[in-house]
Amino acid sequence: MRKELVDLSINGRRHELAVEPNRTLLDVLREDLRLTGTKCGCDDSSCGACTVVVDGQPMLSCLLLAVSYQDSQIQTIESLATQGELGALQRGFVQEGGSQCGFCTPGMVMSLHTLLESTADPTEEEVRAAISGNICRCTGYMQICRAVRHAVAEIREEEIREKERLHA
């Protein structure tokens, strides 16, 4: 198949590359860009392991054709830790045991990352709804829910400290 030149914006960086028009975003991320944090767990868009954030929305990258997302901002798990420093949600996962085998984790974290961007203090139902498309076989979801609560508390404390700093 003939390749097309595409220009993708991933984790704030532009990547120009030649890809076949039938390639999924998942394959391009994993194989062409070697961003292997995003996982493939099924063949029928039903596991959520491949979840990335596209223009602020969680999307299944195994369903998207790479050529169609040239005007989008794409965010993967690799973007969440800045200079080796984990994000609050990632810290929550480590602290609360939200990740066991870890294979669902990148997708889980990206779904929840989007939730926390829009909902500062989600209810348990909102958390569960946000990950209802992300299947985890290891945890029974309890420690994932706790990880979110941990992150929410940490973010709030950080905000309070920030305010106090401004006042002082």
């Binding site: 994993r30 292997t36 944090g37 690799e78 969440l80 996962f93 480590v94 990740s99 974290v109």
Partner: peptide, 21 residues
């Protein structure tokens, strides 16, 4: 004690290397 898991950071950052990686 519930110490942080040894494999935690690699798994939440996508750095853990599974066979397909």
């Amino acid at each position: 004690r519930s110490v942080p898991r040894k494999d935690g950071v690699a798994k939440v950052t996508g750095q853990a290397r599974y066979v397909d990686d």
